[in-house]
Amino acid sequence: MTTLAWRRASDEEPGLIRSAALALLVHIVFFGFMVFGLNWRNDPNESMAVDLWRDMPQQPIKPQPVIKEPIKELPKPTPPAQEPVKPQPEPVQPKSEPVKIKNPPPRKPAIEIKEKIEPPKTIQEEKKVEPVQEKVPKPEPVKEQVKKPEPIKEVEKKVEPERELPEKEQKTVEQDVLAQLAAQKSKALDEIAKYKAMIQAKIRSRIVTPPDLPGNPMVEFRVTLLPGGDVLKVSLRKSSGYAAFDEAVERAIFLAKPLPIPPDPALFKEFRDFSLTVYYQDAL
């Protein structure tokens, strides 16, 4: 009798259903938190960041015409550059010109980068090949173009008379080869120009400029890179006269590492050691 009474008492334990409900609640809350409260998915934010990276280098190429200070002829020579590339069978001289004209683009941006192989050299190399033909008349216009910013029309006028002359010559095969070489070179130069623009853009974006400097001071650095784009050494070549600005640019160069360099290792030699010029107004 008594045991029955105990049984009944123990069966009527106070919160049997209540505790079951609470146990369920604990699990629902916990799993609800796990499912909805935590972010289990990798958000595709990263891809957006990648887009930004791709966009950035292209921007500095567009604003080039705005910056007229370094070299004013820049916007003009570009259009002829594209035209002469296409006609391959043309004489050697017109080809040497596109190379020459292509070289200016790297100078367009506010931050100039002079490569070791500078434009004049390439022209001279080709001149060496050319001398078999007519040396005298051609080199002169070449030099004129380099030094004086002449309008496009003049350039074209000179080009046209030249074209007709070499047509008569027999060495068309050689010319073809040379033309291909020139095309390759101009392609490589395009690539170099592109990456220099990217480097400039990256460095420029990192510069924290000291405010209110008078005028448009210019600072020039010599930058040594490691393969991979890491900055090995930065040395001041020409101070702007404002230590704060010099330091800001130097810091920016280190902050910008790794610098974008072309994937083609053959082109890296252009970037191993180059000089970098920054104008204060453009870094603002």
């Binding site: 334990e13 106070p14 919160g15 209540r18 505790s19 079951a20 609470l22 146990a23 699990h27």
Partner: peptide, 13 residues
């Protein structure tokens, strides 16, 4: 689930 059920039952008891 069971252990939480017992946890609450024992707590009340």
């Amino acid at each position: 689930l069971l252990s939480w059920w017992f946890i609450f039952r024992k707590l009340f008891a």
